[in-house]
Computed example of a mutant assay.
Amino acid sequence: MLFALDFFIRRIAQGLVLVVLVAMLIFTLLRVVPGDPVRMMLGPMVSASVAEQTAKEMGLRDPIPVQFGRYVSQILTGDFGGVPSSEAHKAAALAAREAARLSMPPTAHRFWASSQPVCPTACSLLALHSSLPWESRSRSA
């Protein structure tokens, strides 16, 4: 029993170290990419003052440890960022996702409901796959 507990604790510690190292690697790779993300987002013709103001608002001029802390806190809260878009685009995307969810067979609804907080990407892919009528997929196979 003691061996199993010791083994479990070591594995958990190794997993946590690995997660921290991967987060640091991804953060570093995102910061090392050439080019200014503000210039890429706003375009090359934007004035320097607007670019600097946008960079400050996005937190890109903060010290690196502060940026990494914000990055980790956003990961822990499930905020993986997003694409700036209008409310109309967000509503259209949500409506399309809901329509795809409603077209799924009843067994997939249980999977959707039970795993939605855990793996939204897999559920979204399932919803996209399920956007075809169930009967047409079974006939084509």
Rank of each mutant, 00 (worst) to 15 (best):
residue 2 L to Y: 03
residue 3 F to K: 11
residue 4 A to C: 06
residue 5 L to Y: 08
residue 5 L to E: 10
residue 5 L to I: 13
residue 6 D to R: 14
residue 6 D to Y: 14
residue 11 R to G: 05
residue 13 A to V: 11
residue 13 A to L: 12
residue 16 L to Q: 07
residue 19 V to D: 07
residue 21 L to F: 11
residue 24 M to K: 06
residue 25 L to I: 11
residue 26 I to D: 07
residue 29 L to R: 05
residue 35 G to M: 01
residue 39 R to H: 03
residue 40 M to A: 13
residue 42 L to Q: 05
residue 42 L to C: 08
residue 42 L to H: 05
residue 44 P to D: 14
residue 45 M to G: 13
residue 45 M to Q: 15
residue 48 A to R: 11
residue 48 A to M: 12
residue 50 V to M: 14
residue 50 V to Q: 13
residue 52 E to C: 01
residue 53 Q to T: 15
residue 54 T to V: 09
residue 54 T to I: 02
residue 57 E to L: 14
residue 60 L to N: 03
residue 65 P to Q: 04
residue 65 P to Y: 02
residue 66 V to L: 13
residue 66 V to S: 09
residue 66 V to D: 06
residue 69 G to A: 09
residue 69 G to N: 05
residue 70 R to W: 05
residue 70 R to I: 09
residue 71 Y to D: 07
residue 73 S to Q: 10
residue 77 T to K: 07
residue 80 F to L: 13
residue 81 G to Q: 07
residue 81 G to N: 08
residue 86 S to H: 06
residue 87 E to Y: 09
residue 88 A to G: 01
residue 88 A to K: 05
residue 90 K to A: 15
residue 91 A to G: 03
residue 94 L to Y: 09
residue 95 A to P: 01
residue 96 A to I: 03
residue 98 E to G: 01
residue 98 E to R: 10
residue 98 E to N: 08
residue 99 A to G: 04
residue 101 R to L: 10
residue 101 R to K: 09
residue 102 L to T: 05
residue 104 M to L: 13
residue 106 P to A: 04
residue 106 P to N: 01
residue 110 R to I: 12
residue 112 W to F: 15
residue 115 S to W: 14
residue 120 P to N: 03
residue 121 T to V: 10
residue 123 C to Q: 13
residue 125 L to R: 11
residue 128 L to S: 08
residue 130 S to V: 03
residue 131 S to E: 04
residue 131 S to D: 02
residue 133 P to T: 09
residue 134 W to M: 06
residue 136 S to H: 14
residue 136 S to P: 03
residue 137 R to E: 11
residue 138 S to N: 12
residue 139 R to G: 02
residue 139 R to I: 14
residue 139 R to F: 11
